[in-house]
Structure formats: structure tokens, C-alpha cells
Nucleic acid binder design. Structure first.
Lengths: 231, 231
DNA sequence: CTCCTTCCTAACACTTTCTTAACGCGCCTT
DNA sequence: AAGGCGCGTTAAGAAAGTGTTAGGAAGGAG
């Protein structure tokens, strides 16, 4: 997760500051977690693997620097330190302990958010493994929006692709007619079960070896369709 | 190269500041390069691939922000901006343009060095970035903004070039209409899908052998466009 | 100011995709 | 065995999306 919806963990003991940052971060579309102590912060970081950690140095239970170095024992999560201490030696120590950035209070919200964006940008230079779905002779590269059968690319129209990936998302499970129509054609009205039959036929012709006796794109009579995982 | 011996490029027009930083950096064991203008800085960056770039925003020949975004067209080299301007909006703009850090003059040497160490620590292990992209008969020098077909230079207008390099950045993947309009025309409103059709036509005429049956600049109907990598 | 480049816009031809209808087949019920 | 039902299949028209061209507006350079 790198764009909006990224998870930010704030470790800060001052309630007023927490409330302020919470509003700023949630208002910018980030998911948000908070801890009031270093112990709690480390434990939450381990549990939830946030995308960025905002760390106040002045914590009651342990030194902020220790939080950073403990975290760095197992994680490369970007850490932005926010601190009232503006001494150069404080900054140097924090940065050398493993922090990625150091912001002195008071600071502007917009600068903080910009630095969070930098951290997120840096966090995954496409580190996230590309989502590729494979099944039998099929390979689907969700990122590139490409479908291969026996390493031969097959072109799918937008609706075909949408229908197919919807089944992939629910791979193995039955997806009802209603659910498919909703997810592929959008909640709007007008979508008829007939569409499903037409497009399932087309998908089978493009993807199945024997379209008339499908191996993976199975019909569940009276209920819906299912992408069969077993062989 | 990431530890001592790393190469630092300083882009700064003020001789006094240059001398000062040179002493600090060389004294810390870094290899050192300098440029007095944005143009020279970009060119040196392309030639020598420094591990970190220190950039003064107040350059005589071009805006510092433009240096960053030009650089980001082909390189992920960490950029630390050093500037006399301390306004929050300056910081936000620079960071959003692609800078990794922002330091306001005057600053302490030790803090600068600590931030350089952070940048180096972060340095991309995946050094595979090339300022030159080649595909079939095409060669694109991202640093110099030059495009060649069969070693013959082809002139692209700014928008054509931007559209082309956007597709290159996402080479192989489908780029949606929305995304292209956002990245090429800027988030602002008014951008219409019609623009894409017009400029794709022009690109194809300038770059493709058979513009009406493109080999690389493919359309994904209803979705977007894709720079096709396979043959 | 004029020339030149680049960008935006509109019109029209064309292609792909979507929707719709008709028909065939097998299964179950009566 | 006949009829109803659900699903698969096919094809054709409608709709949506795309390619192409050209001309005028806007902006910058000399």
C-alpha cells in the first residue's frame, strides 16, 4: 500500500498532538493507528506493519532513539521523527539511529504530509510483488492487465476481463448471478442474467481448451459460476 | 557505492557555498562533483550517476524544481534540496516534485552529513536504471530528451514527449486514459480523452513504421494505451 | 509586429464492444 | 412423451469508443 489508504502509525504521548495529527492524516485519506508509549508502538508496528511510522522522541517509557533501533532490528519501515528538541546533535543521533527524517516542532501540517508522501514513495519502489494469478495453462498479470494461455496473449474486452478477474478474486468459491452482475456491470439496473451467459460463453471460447466442457469456468446451476481451482 | 567513497554531486551557483560544502564532503571521505547551473548538473548526473545529489534551488539558468522533475524522468538518485527559502510551500513543492529531503539555509554541517547518510542508506540497490531506453528501432535518451528512430533524431513536441515517456515509464503495462491525462496534462481539469487520440496519432506517425497498424503503441479499447514490449 | 511552433478543437470515418433476440439442447416434471 | 425451464450458442444491429485530418488560437522568439 503506498497511495491513499496507506497505514500510518503515530507514536506520541501527548493527547493534544495525537488528536491534531489524527485529523490531518485521516483527512488526507490515510488509515491511522496510534500508540502512547514506545512499547505499545513497537508492538503495534509488529502487529500491523504500517507503511510509515511517525515517532515523537519524548516518550514516557523509553527513549525515542531506542524505539528506532529496536524497530530497525527487524523492519525497514520508514520512520519520521517529530521532536521538540531542535539541537543538531539530536537530529544527527536520530538519523544515524535509523530514522529517515527529522521534523522539529512546531511544524506545518502540509510539510509533514509532504514528508510522509516522500517516505511512502520511497517505501516501495515497486517492492510490492506484482500480483500474478496462474492456473493450469493460464497466467493473468493483474498489474499489466494481460491474460496468457500457454504463454500466448489473449485479448479480452473490458467486460470479459472484468468478469474474469471478478471470478479470480473469488477463486474457488461460487459467485452468484446477482453478485457478478453487480460487480461487473455496476450496481445500476438493466443488467440481465442473459449477459452472463453470453460473456461466459465468450470467455470459455477464448480460454478453455474445450469450451463446451469447461474445466475451470464452471456453471453452478441455479446459483452462479465458479472458477474451479482443482484439476 | 553507498558507504564512504560514495559520489556526491553538488549543484550550487554560489562559489563560497561550493567551497564550504566541498571541504565538508571530501573531509568525510566522499568523492565529489560540482556544477554551477541546472543544465550542467543534469548533464553531470547523467554522465556520472552520483549516489546523492545536493541541489540548491536558486540557480541562475533554471528553476530548481524543474531540475528535480527532469532528473526524475529517468533517475531515482536521492536529491537533498538546500535552499534559503524556508516557506512551507517551497518545501512541499520540492518534496512533491521528487526531492527526498529539504534543508533550509543556514544548516549545520553535521546535520547535512547525517541526512546524506540517510540518503545513501536508502540508495537503490537496484542500480539497473539507465538514462537510455531502447526498443526495436527506437532509442530514447531520457536525460537529453532526445528520441531516435533508426539513429535518426525525431523531434517531439513537449506534450508528445511527455506522453511517450509516460508510456515508457509504465512499459508493458496498460496505462488508463485517466492516468495518462493526469500524468501528462497535470491533475487540472479540462483534459479530455480526445487529446489522447490526437497525440497518439501524432506519435504513431512520427515513430511507427505503419502508423495505422502500430506495433508498439497499442490501443487497449475502452481502457487506455500500452507500450508493447514483446515483438 | 510577424513568424513559427505547439496546442486545442471540431468533424467525420471507422473499429470494437455491448446489447439484444432467436434458437438449440438437455434435464426435470407431470 | 410433452412441455417448461435454465443454460449455451450464434449473429446482427446499436452504442460506444477510436483514428484521422485540418484549421484556428495561443504563446514565444526574433
Amino acid at each position: 500500500m503506498s497511495g491513499p489508504g496507506a497505514l500510518i502509525l503515530l507514536v506520541e504521548d501527548e493527547p493534544q498532538m495525537r488528536r491534531f495529527l489524527r485529523v490531518s492524516l485521516e483527512g488526507s485519506g490515510y488509515r491511522y493507528l496510534e500508540a502512547a508509549t514506545g512499547q505499545e508502538g513497537l508492538s503495534l508496528a509488529a502487529q500491523h506493519r504500517p507503511d510509515v511510522l511517525l515517532l515523537d522522541l519524548g516518550l514516557p517509557d523509553m527513549d525515542g532513539l531506542e524505539v528506532v533501533s529496536r524497530l530497525r532490528e527487524w523492519s525497514q519501515i520508514p520512520v519520521i521523527v517529530i521532536s521538540a528538541r531542535g539541537q543538531e546533535s539530536d537530529k544527527v543521533d536520530a538519523l544515524d539511529a535509523g530514522a529517515n527524517d527529522y521534523l522539529t516542532k512546531p511544524f506545518g501540517t502540509r510539510e509533514l504530509l509532504a514528508r510522509v508522501r516522500v517516505a511512502l514513495r520511497h517505501a516501495n519502489p515497486e517492492a510490492g510483488e506484482q500480483p500474478v494469478f496462474t492456473l493450469g495453462r493460464w497466467r493473468v498479470d493483474l498489474a499489466k492487465r494481460q491474460v496468457f494461455v500457454e504463454d500466448q496473449e489473449v485479448h479480452l474486452t473490458p467486460l470479459e476481463y472484468s468478469l474474469f478477474t471478478t471470478l479470480i478474486r473469488h477463486a474457488g468459491k461460487v459467485v452468484t448471478h446477482r453478485q457478478l452482475l453487480k460487480e461487473v456491470w455496476g450496481g445500476a439496473a438493466g443488467a440481465q442474467p442473459l449477459y452472463l451467459r453470453v460473456y461466459m460463453t465468450q470467455l470459455r471460447h477464448k480460454l478453455e481448451e474445450e469450451p463446451s466442457r469447461p474445466r475451470y469456468l464452471k456453471t453452478e446451476p441455479g446459483v452462479g459460476y465458479r472458477l474451479f481451482l482443482e484439476d
